[in-house]
């Protein structure tokens, strides 16, 4: 139980997917203009991350690892994620139309989201057990959501600010993102104190 909590807190706060590992930055910058988009994308990311881990984890440990094909993991995982997203989209569209509407165009976008692939690879690298891997994927998704929500708030403040012309648009967004990211460095060392 304690191990799960450590994994959860460390992926959400310390090794935050977006703000510490710098994965999924494209959607982080692109979809944080309003809360509705951020919410849709975050929920979709959490969902796909869990499902994709559930599939890639057994593929790696039961097929790739025993016959020394670990080096194929990147290619195979990309393939699997793309296929899983396609299948999920079809199923959700048929079975849960409201959910499909809520996720809208974000589901296909996730196919090319590096955050998903990154988490899959990290789960393998850390040699987590299956349960831990699922927990880590869930935590990573929650961390992504946290980063999205925080940054949406920052950006809504920025819209009202008087920004010099040469910084308007992407430059000020990137600077704000870096400051938010720096703030997350403050969490380093928190886990050791929390869980002894």
């Amino acid at each position: 139980m304690k191990e799960m909590l450590v994994i959860l807190f460390s992926v959400v706060l310390i090794d935050n997917l977006v703000l510490s590992r710098f994965l999924g930055v494209c959607s982080f910058l692109g979809l944080t203009k309003d809360l509705k988009n951020a919410m849709g994308m975050s929920v979709a990311v959490i969902f796909v991350m869990m499902v994709a881990t559930g599939i890639t984890y057994p593929i790696y440990w039961s097929i790739l690892a025993p016959i020394n094909l670990g080096y194929l993991q990147t290619v195979i995982f990309i393939l699997v994620i793309a296929a899983v997203v396609q299948v999920l989209e079809a199923i959700i569209r048929k079975a849960f139309p409201p959910l499909y509407k809520a996720m809208g165009i974000y589901l296909p976008l996730i196919t090319t989201n590096c955050a998903i692939l990154g988490v899959m690879l990290i789960n393998i690298q850390e040699e987590y057990s299956f349960i831990s891997a699922m927990m880590s994927s869930f935590g990573a998704g929650v961390g992504y959501m946290l980063a999205m929500f925080l940054f949406t708030g920052v950006r809504s403040k920025m819209e009202k600010a008087d920004i010099p012309e040469f910084l308007q648009g992407l430059p000020i967004t990137l600077m704000a993102a870096s400051i938010v990211s720096v703030s997350f460095m403050g969490f380093k060392g928190v886990i050791e104190n929390l869980f002894g």
């Binding site: 393939l79 296929a83 299948v87 079975a95």
Partner: peptide, 23 residues
């Protein structure tokens, strides 16, 4: 074989799912 096999499997899965879940 493994790469191709997984790709084929995924392709087949997509085909099947799209057949049953077409809207």
């Amino acid at each position: 074989l493994i790469g191709g096999g997984i790709a084929l499997l995924m392709g087949a899965a997509i085909l099947v799912v799209f057949r049953f879940f077409s809207v």
